[in-house]
Design a binder for these strands. Structure first.
Lengths: 143, 143
DNA sequence: TTTTTAATGGACAATAAGGTCTTTTAGTAT
DNA sequence: ATACTAAAAGACCTTATTGTCCATTAAAAA
């Protein structure tokens, strides 16, 4: 569904938040292992997440990644826009620029509601809400 | 939503079928122009469509692309599987291998119905049904 | 203050997606 | 037959995605 960068970013952030909730502060090695993603690439992605301001990093011994609890929650939509852009969230399946009720593409009527559902979902769900739902063992479910 | 190949293939095939319904047999130059896609790339994609057997081609003067009316209709799903694979149609947004009702990823409950809708849509709609819905000028709606 | 630890930065490599160009092949019409 | 037309084939190119590697920097512990 999403591209790799979005997927790894999503899993990483949810994992970090999930650990933070238990007062733990995971590092890159642990994160990459748990979410089953390439370590160096995950590091690169998390670097971007830090620059954007989605999450904080702490260097040195005992360091790792932490969320700033005082900051607003991060929606899935914000994350997607930061990684792969709006492609999945807007535009019609036919690739038309002007596709609306008046000038509908052949898929318009059936596709509209689906796209709306996706947008609703990614606007409502946040890294935090997803981390709360992650109660079982994390790693065993991936790959 | 879809990748370029799927998009161009979809638009091409729907355009061809739409023209066929009017007893016309468009060639590559016309098709690429009308669907606003790169000609050489569209040619390559249509070549694949011909090899797969989705559409027929006729060489030489008066040639072009035609659907075999005796063949079964082509669903959007068949097309997608042939171009970009099942990625959009299956798997969970979280990238988990085992994501089901028993071991749900944090997105499972909300994502399931959306994915089902997409699958229903692409299984029901065909090149032919989309071509029938294309009654207005084709080109003006794209880009 | 030195050592250790862990993230950062940036260059680089591999693969896939998207796209072009030229020659060949197979038809059609004259 | 010959000329013309249009798709087929395949080599090649460009860009984006998905990575790797290594030196640097910042923080904590000893």
């Amino acid at each position: 569904m999403f591209n790799k960068e979005t997927e790894y970013a999503l899993r990483s952030l949810v994992y970090i938040q999930h650990q933070n909730y238990q007062n733990l502060r995971p590092g890159i090695e642990e994160i990459a292992k748990e979410i089953e993603a390439p370590q160096a690439y995950t590091a690169k992605i998390l670097q971007r997440m830090v620059r954007i301001g989605f999450v904080n990093s702490i260097k040195g011994k005992g360091g790792g990644f932490v969320f700033d609890e005082s900051k607003p929650k991060i929606t899935l939509k914000q994350l997607i826009l930061a990684t792969e852009g709006a492609k999945i969230l807007e535009g019609c399946g036919f690739g038309m620029k002007y596709c609306d009720a008046e000038n509908p593409c052949p898929l318009h009527d059936q596709f509209g509601p689906i796209r709306d559902s996706i947008n609703r979902l990614v606007s409502e769900e946040t890294i935090q809400s997803l981390a709360r739902k992650t109660n079982q063992a994390f790693k065993v479910l991936i790959h």
